[in-house]
Design a protein around this nucleic acid. Structure first.
Length: 362
DNA sequence: AAACGCCGCAACCGCCGAGGT
DNA sequence: AACCTCGGCGGTTGCGGCGTT
């Protein structure tokens, strides 16, 4: 049947809006409300089509729009929501107050998507893709500095994890969650976001993707499965959320702290993820007797992009601000560049359902 | 200083579904 | 039931700013 254009394009202006047009539109809507968009431009004295006015208002002029850089929490939320909702930008925007779907879409396409690709994550499926991983930079980095060759073994270990069908099954689960428990999951997500926000105010271990720098900052410790979990997530008694395990009901969860983490995490790492990645920052060790170990388990959160724990995860810099939780292994990257934020989402917290049986799962 | 290329973002386009007539 | 209008959505485009050569 075809659709008539929303308005007669003849004589109507297109392109960037002028301050005068913005002022007219804003003044009219503040007085009259948006009402009928088709008739609005005529009533407001604008030579624009109604659709253009609506877009200008909803994407730019609306007073509740938050402008400026996306925060850590916002970016985290976008990635998580995208893994569940896909390109449902309006649905994602509905959970990010002050952000428009257009802004989120643009931010995804220009920032997040590229970062995921660089980290070997398929931005569509959120699954790890070895063919997307920038192996050339990793290898060239290793060749330039033989001391960093240890990282290659880590890469191999993580590669095995990526190829492990169980891991793959985990990584593809959000699609099933989307269908079965999306509402519950989103509820959890919002709670998680609040928790994440709290965490960020305290201390966030962030990871850098600049693999050509890490050899100067960290020395990789060979994988060790007997070391107590001293990672920041476990030391802080933050609830851990495991939202991507197939069949899990997000509302039947239990807190999972440092005490039981050794029982649960080590077998998981051994069985599913080959080896956890332990490393220490030998430039800023605060306790000479106990190396600062940091573990980024391959056991993943709701968002599969967090599988990019491998190469990038070995880069960290000692947090310079006080750590209120006295976690000895809380790191944050010293720079605040965008690349350095690539892996901060690894902070996702896990919740282990009481019904979850590790043995059965293995 | 000029040319060029890249990047980010605002704006546009076309399609769709809901609701009204 | 068929048609139409409207608002909303996701994908795409094009311009301006910025960095590099």
């Amino acid at each position: 049947m075809g659709r008539a254009p929303c308005c007669d394009k003849n004589g109507l202006k297109k392109g960037p809006w002028t301050p005068e047009e913005d002022q007219k539109l804003t003044a009219y809507i503040q007085l009259q409300g948006p009402g009928n968009w088709r008739s609005l431009p005529k009533n407001a004295g604008l030579q624009r089509c109604g659709k253009s006015c609506r877009l200008r208002w909803t994407n730019y002029l609306r007073p509740d729009i938050k402008r400026g850089r996306f925060s850590f929490e916002e970016e985290e939320t976008i990635i998580q929501l995208h893994s569940i909702l896909g390109n449902k930008w309006s649905a994602i925007a509905a959970r990010l107050p002050g952000r428009t779907d257009n802004e989120i879409k643009n931010y995804w396409n220009t920032h997040i998507r590229k970062r995921l690709l660089r980290n070997g994550i398929d931005p569509v499926t959120h699954a790890s893709r070895l063919d997307l991983l920038d192996l050339s930079s990793i290898l060239s980095s290793a060749l330039c500095n033989p001391s960093s060759l240890l990282t290659l073994s880590t890469l191999v270990g993580n590669t095995q994890a990526l190829l492990n069908p169980d891991i793959f099954r985990l990584s593809t689960t959000p699609s099933s969650l989307k269908q079965e428990n999306s509402d519950l999951f989103l509820q959890q997500l919002q709670e998680n976001q609040l928790c994440s926000s709290l965490l960020q105010n305290q201390a966030i271990p962030t990871l850098s993707s600049q693999s050509n720098q890490f050899q100067n900052q960290v020395e990789l410790i060979p994988a060790c499965t007997t070391t107590a979990s001293t990672g920041p997530f476990l030391n802080q008694t933050t609830p851990l959320m495991l939202a991507n395990v197939e069949g899990f009901s997000p509302n039947t969860t239990s807190t999972f702290s440092c005490q039981n983490s050794q029982e649960n995490f080590v077998p998981l790492n051994e069985g599913l993820v080959s080896q956890p990645n332990f490393y220490c920052n030998n430039t800023t060790t605060t306790n000479p007797k106990v190396p600062e170990l940091e573990e980024y388990s391959g056991f993943q959160s709701a968002n599969n992009c967090y599988q990019n724990f491998s190469i990038d995860s070995v880069i960290s810099t000692r947090l310079t601000s006080p750590d209120p939780l006295n976690s000895p292994s809380t790191y944050v990257n010293s720079s605040s560049t965008e690349d350095d934020r690539e892996c901060y989402s690894s902070l996702l917290k896990f919740e282990i359902p009481e019904s979850f049986d590790i043995d059965d799962f293995l």
